[in-house]
Design a protein around this nucleic acid. Structure first.
Lengths: 348, 348
DNA sequence: TCCCTCTGTGTAAACGATTACATATTCGCG
DNA sequence: CGCGAATATGTAATCGTTTACACAGAGGGA
């Protein structure tokens, strides 16, 4: 592999001069510059990043820690991150870490010296496991908030989004509105529940515990919860699921029981995954700008990095948006496919 | 940041001894080992990977180059890669690179010295741009095959999968079977077309050029192609789309035109994306084991790395599987949701 | 003329790890 | 008792960069 020494020898200058030219530091005569650039290009010289990071103690890389995640969300958030990272000359080191303390710690250890900062997403994490990390590098927490003020965090406007959706259901005349809750100990789940209750109270409706069913963010969970709701003496007229997967499970249950949607029972979800608009009927949901979430996270992190982790900590939220489809409202507000360039092929 | 020197000083030994203990190289007395481990743990020492890679010229990191991709495929393939990478103590450096020469080259340059090898996916790539890279590191090409024999490659059994699906359509009695082709200059697209033609010939049917419509892997493309097919004097009785997105677009077109599926027109896709089973009617497709694709790619790369890129080059294919649903066959072969733990929440 | 300030360049010391080689101690065995 | 082998540890070179410092020559002002 060709090193800076090889280039220097070839150009009859010292390594210092080569380094100065390639980094634009210090004064070098125009002619020497031209010569060195030409030679470096011809020899296909690329600096060894390890050596560089050794002396500069910068890696130009940011670490990304994600829980065991499937689907659309994952790819979108990475896309957003990669965009802003690349724009700023940074690389992405990605690692899937089981969301327990041990997993996170192991992953963070592995990243020491490899990254300038970390974006960690771990929705049901005790942030403690992060706080006693062997590092002074900046960290941005995604989809959960740390207890102290030590760490930047970025979350979805869960509560607000849930509130808006439930308010929408209320505006359609619903009074008995059920919720299928998200996974226990999950930040997003807790916030969405909070928004649900808030909307009810704002409408003068006292939240009814029997209408708050447990769920786990899976389709099967939504299916079972919906069956339980149907079995109630005093059925609700609307179901708000804490995410789309559960809403889809609920739709199945209702369909199988011959319940008419939205006439007999309205259904709404959260996330607005691509599947939502393909449901029958198309599913109303709370849209989350996932790509932007990733982008903002990286921006926050870069800010922390440039300030050497000595900056005002922030807590930001990305806004959500209500998307009303036929599962809550009889008139079709949106017509399905084709939408040019919206859904792409997985293999292309 | 605590270095190996700090640990050595604290333990009253030389850096060499510390290094030996932590790497398990050379003989060190049990007591010293215990002491050093204890101190290293207490001080939260983690070796600086840059320094290490400088001397060992190994990074324990593999680079991943992906085209501008949305959706399920992306996340699944990364999942497969990360699994096997982690199992072998490797990290993943991920970069999205526009699939032109310049994009790839830039990305590969950025990775020099950071990675021990690269998995590159670039379906419509002239492999030339890869071959004259400034590197001697191993490369595995995903979803396309290099012209020469210089590079390992891993592809989907496109041709075989397409052939099987078309054979299935033939077995249902179809004779006039149309195809909506994939993007031009795309490897997968070309192979799927080849499989389609092969199946027809095997059934004694001469491929009819008017039944081979252009597509681009997008929903809109499938929609338009289907309309064109409907407008033919002598309509086909079945449509095979080179991917699911186009098949879904075609379904929309048919529905809007009041064509009954599968009675009047059978429809099949390729990829088996999660959406497929939610279509109305559920879409028959060729299942691609995406996660395994990523896993195999990393395995191949690790093999090349361990052999220092001096190994037999290979060309492998991951097998596909036919999934028949109602869009081609009247009797429901599969019942939709809920499938426990199959489709998860994007935010969980 | 002298000195000071630029400009352009080289020398060498870091950075944090690994490892070949040297050294010191212990032990076993003839 | 003495010698070689085995064990435990230290010393120092090395990897490829960046950068503080030194230095040489040129130009300008007093």
């Amino acid at each position: 592999m060709v090193t800076i020494k090889d280039v220097a020898r070839e150009a009859n200058v010292s390594v210092a001069t080569v380094s100065r030219v390639l980094n634009g530091s210090g004064p070098v005569s125009d002619e020497t510059q031209r010569l060195i650039r030409e030679i470096a290009g011809r020899m296909r010289y690329v600096p060894h990043s390890g050596a560089r990071s050794l002396i500069t103690s910068k890696t130009q890389t940011i670490g990304v820690l994600l829980p065991d995640l499937y689907g659309e969300f994952f790819s979108e958030v990475i896309r957003g991150m990669d965009d802003t990272a690349q724009k700023n000359g940074f690389h992405l080191l990605i690692s899937r870490a089981y969301a327990d303390r041990h997993g996170i710690e192991t992953a963070m250890r592995g990243m020491r010296g490899r990254v300038d900062g970390v974006v960690a997403m771990s929705p049901d994490l005790d942030e403690n496991s992060l706080l006693n990390l062997p590092s002074t590098i900046p960290v941005v927490l995604l989809c959960s908030v740390p207890r102290g003020n030590e760490i930047d965090s970025l979350t979805i406007q869960n509560s607000r989004g849930a509130r808006d959706m439930v308010a929408h259901l209320v505006s359609l005349g619903h009074r008995r509105i059920a919720i299928i809750k998200g996974a226990a100990r999950n930040y997003d789940a807790a916030e969405r529940l909070r928004g649900y209750r808030k909307a009810l109270r704002e409408a003068g409706i006292e939240p009814d515990p029997t209408l708050e069913r447990n769920g786990d963010f899976t389709e099967a969970g939504g299916y079972l919860a919906a069956l339980a709701l149907l079995a109630l003496k005093d059925r609700p007229t609307a179901i708000f699921a804490a995410n789309d997967s559960m809403a889809i499970g609920a739709l199945s249950a209702l369909r199988e029981s011959g319940v008419e949607i939205p006439g007999e029972m309205a259904v709404a979800g959260f996330d607005d995954i691509p599947l939502a608009r393909y449901m029958d009927p198309p599913l109303s949901s709370v849209h989350v700008p996932i790509c932007e979430l990733g982008a903002r996270a990286v921006e926050m992190l870069l800010h922390g990095i440039s300030r050497k982790n000595d900056h005002q900590r922030r807590r930001e939220r990305v806004p959500t948006e209500l998307v009303i489809r036929r599962s809550t409202s009889a008139q079709p507000a949106e017509r399905p496919p084709p939408t040019i360039g919206k859904v792409r092929s997985p293999v292309s």
